[in-house]
């Protein structure tokens, strides 16, 4: 996809190897992956206008070439229900970002403002990720989110590119697979939509091998027939110079 290449070029020109969230979501949309409605805003007024257009409640997230881990910089505010909450959140995010910068001794670039996104309804949380292994190359990881991935490490891998039956096997072979069938009276989840997201990520990485790491975390999977949404997307690409290490 040409748009993706352009985004990667811009990032590298700015000296960053991570892709801003709005850019990541542009790329995802280009591959037919569902994401919550989003837009960007450079001022509090613009944020309010955009928020109204998307519809409340919304989420605000910092967009800066200097901030990879947005929460660490106080750059994420969720479940904002009206204009005044958005206005307040915008100011707070900018202040925290400045403070984060001065603590680190850097001038944080704030010119891009924030991402405004629809505060998506809670679905079954899953993680879809990509890593590039030195021996095997690109591999895709799938697992249920939250404690399943954090504590139980209940995840499964396939090399990219993969077939649809690989994707279906992955979804079926994690230990907690039954949760997607619907347990305790819940209807079954939209596994077809989930498989589509996995296949689209596989295609995206196949076509853009400069991606070295990718997280769709969380991705929400809804009731059968209601789809799936990548709520937070992170993409890291290969730098032209040796990659600087960054901690969580």
């Amino acid at each position: 996809m040409k748009a993706a290449k352009k985004i990667f070029e811009t990032a590298l020109a700015e000296g960053r190897t991570f892709i801003l969230e709005n850019e990541a979501k542009d790329i995802m949309k280009g591959y037919g992956i569902g994401v919550p409605a989003y837009d960007t805003a450079k001022s509090a007024d613009e944020a309010v206008t955009k928020a109204r257009k998307i519809g409340y409640p919304v989420v605000l997230k910092i967009l800066s070439k200097d901030i990879l881990h947005k929460s660490d910089a106080g750059g994420v505010k969720v479940n904002l229900k009206d204009d005044s909450e958005v206005r307040k959140a915008f100011q707070e995010i900018m202040e925290s970002a400045r403070k984060y910068g001065s603590e680190k001794g850097i001038q944080v670039d704030l010119s891009r403002g924030v991402l405004i996104s629809d505060f998506a309804d809670q679905g079954t949380e899953v993680i879809i990720g990509v890593t590039r292994d030195p021996q095997f190359g690109h591999a895709l990881m799938f697992g249920l989110g939250g404690i399943f991935v954090e504590v139980l490490k209940d995840v499964t891998f396939r090399l990219i590119p993969m077939t649809e039956s690989d994707a279906r096997e992955m979804v079926g072979e994690i230990k907690a697979a039954k949760i997607l069938d619907g347990v305790r009276g819940q209807p079954p989840r939209d596994v077809d939509a989930l498989v589509n997201v996995i296949m689209s990520i596989s295609k995206m990485v196949k076509e853009n091998p400069e991606i070295i790491e990718l997280d769709c975390n969380p991705t929400f999977v809804y009731d059968k027939g209601k789809g799936a949404l990548v709520v937070d997307a992170r993409i890291l690409i290969e730098g032209t110079k040796p990659k600087e290490s960054s901690a969580h």
Partner: peptide, 25 residues
């Protein structure tokens, strides 16, 4: 786990797990 991983996936993925998946695939 990769010491320098910046993503969740990179931190979880061990080479042996990926080898295991590759064999199966």
């Amino acid at each position: 786990a990769r010491a320098a991983a910046s993503s969740h996936t990179g931190a979880i993925a061990g080479s042996d797990q990926i080898a295991d998946a590759a064999y199966r695939q």
